[in-house]
Amino acid sequence: MKIKTEAGERHVLAITVDNEAGVLAKITGLFTARGYNIESLTVADISSDHALSRITIVTNGPPPVIDQIIAQLDRLVPVHRVIDLADGGAHVEREIALVKVAGTGDKRIEALRMADVFRAKVVDTTLTSFIFEITGNSDKVDRFIALMRECGLVEVGRTGVVAIGRGSEAL
């Protein structure tokens, strides 16, 4: 007997939670305990009194599973609100990557030229390396990193996705 898995679709969830110890563990634990995917997760305190945090989770699953993830998150005591950004119409997603490329000669020049095309900023340089800062949606960051692999990429750090709905409405 083989174990079957179902194909899914990508969703970005924005979750506001009490900024308290253990809340992040509760949420990530829910994902592992119920077998849901986390593609990326970001979290930071967002309120002036430091009482609330916003967690952005990129997940993947068939529509009934996404619906179940939202319902399961929503019933956790410290969770205030869960929004599926795909449901709310258009939204903006961004992530930042820091990309370190080492090398000399043509590859170094090529790396700099491509960074310019991608509007990546040089944030540090030595005679044999650059660190680029690139901001964009995940696809753009993926493509930039793939190109840098050909130009001496040695290290990458990524923030994961933050996202917010377009227009004047707030979460």
Binding site: A21, G22, A25, K26, G29, L30, A33, V77, P78
Partner: peptide
Amino acid sequence: TVGITRHCTKHNYL
């Protein structure tokens, strides 16, 4: 205790 019971309680506190 709060770690162990995090996923088998409705809610917990330390």
